[in-house]
């Protein structure tokens, strides 16, 4: 073999090793960092549990919605807090012993939806989505792609109002748990 060719090979090997090792030493710190960066992806929202939000007797007979704060256990990274506000719902009587519950969060972009008593409908203050009193979209030009998120309700012991509280992904046409 001709010595310059041999040298050329050695030179190439050196360069390859230097580049590979030099690159490889950066991998562990970056990999550990990226793992931590991506950690939130595997976190899930709170599973919907039934929570007592109030009493049936507090709801007007005429079907006007009332807003209730939902108090339950909340986990925020390392903290665990019991009996703290995690959201709110509109509740209204649809029959003497039947209620409908709507999550106050707008399904469009997540703003807090207001109830307009004079118009008997809901209006989102952010992008003007409007919803009928039963939560359905009542405007063909509504920015929201689905009606307000209805939540399961239960009446326990005659008067206690329980709601299966859950948040859903904003923006999607279907209800997907957050």
């Amino acid at each position: 073999m001709d010595p310059t060719e041999n040298e050329g090979r050695r030179d190439f090997l050196k360069k390859a090793c230097a580049a590979c090792i030099g690159g490889a030493v950066m991998i562990p710190p970056i990999a550990a960092g990226v793992a931590v960066l991506l950690d939130p992806i595997r976190k899930k929202g709170a599973a919907g549990d039934f929570v007592q939000v109030g009493f049936l007797s507090a709801l007007p007979d005429d079907g006007t919605p009332r807003k209730f704060t939902v108090l339950t256990t909340r986990e925020d990274a390392w903290n665990k807090m019991t009996n703290v506000p995690v959201g709110a719902v509109y509740l209204r009587r649809v029959a003497p012993d039947k209620v409908q519950a709507l999550n106050v969060v707008c399904p469009h972009a997540g703003c807090f939806v207001d109830f307009m008593p004079d118009r008997s409908s809901y209006l989102c203050p952010c992008h003007d989505s409007t919803f009928a009193i039963d939560g359905k979209i009542n405007d063909r030009k509504s920015p929201a792609s689905r009606g307000m998120d209805e939540l399961e309700t239960q009446i326990r012991n005659g008067n206690e109002l329980w709601v299966k509280f859950q948040n859903f992904l904003a923006g999607a046409p279907e209800k997907i748990p957050a």
């Binding site: 710190p29 990999a31 550990a32 960092g33 990226v34 793992a35 931590v36 950690d39 990274a77 390392w78």
Partner: peptide, 26 residues
């Protein structure tokens, strides 16, 4: 929250113990 967040990194985040370990020992 300082201790608490470090505890969380160390014990509850994927790769957290490695990340903190590399930073500490480097």
């Amino acid at each position: 929250t300082a201790w608490e967040s470090v505890y969380y990194i160390q014990n509850h985040m994927t790769g957290g113990a490695w990340l903190r370990g590399i930073h500490h020992f480097t």
